[in-house]
């Protein structure tokens, strides 16, 4: 019974994770400029990938695999904001980030990242 419950919980996590992954890629396709796309990729993508790894941890029924999967989740949560931040900083300086359709830009006075 407990095993069945764990399987259902894992299935739920996996479906939610896959849905977030799908939403992240739709967001990367639909959103109008680089910085807004970055929101979709870094938030929905990280949550989606993390939830799928969490589902693997629940569904494996093996402590060794579960610990590795959870370490993977922690790794994703640490690295995703790092890479998003570095990419945003680099592309803002390189003028890749669209600066015209933006409501306010208080970074303009500064001449790019140093």
């Amino acid at each position: 019974m407990i095993v069945d419950l764990a399987i259902y919980a894992g299935c739920f996590l996996m479906l939610v994770g896959a849905a977030f992954c799908l939403l992240a890629s739709v967001g990367v396709l639909r959103l109008p400029d680089l910085l807004t796309r970055m929101h979709a990729a870094s938030k929905a993508g990280a949550v989606g990938g993390g939830l799928i790894l969490l589902a693997v941890a629940v569904l494996s029924f093996d402590p060794a695999v579960a610990v590795r999967a959870i370490i993977g989740v922690v790794f994703i949560l640490i690295t995703t904001p790092l890479s998003a931040h570095l990419l945003a900083r680099a592309s803002y300086g390189a003028d890749y980030a669209a600066k015209n359709n933006i409501a306010a830009d208080e970074m303009k006075s500064k001449s790019g990242p140093n």
């Binding site: 994770g17 896959a18 992954c21 992240a24 890629s25 990367v28 680089l34 796309r37 970055m38 990729a41 993508g45 990280a46 989606g48 990938g49 799928i52 790894l53 994703i76 995703t80 890479s83 990419l87 680099a90 592309s91 390189a94 890749y96 980030a97």
Partner: peptide
């Protein structure tokens, strides 16, 4: 930068 962002998302998706 758009392509790099999409490739980053691609690896996360492949991982899932």
């Amino acid at each position: 930068a758009d392509r790099v962002l999409a490739l980053d998302l691609l690896t996360v998706l492949a991982m899932g």
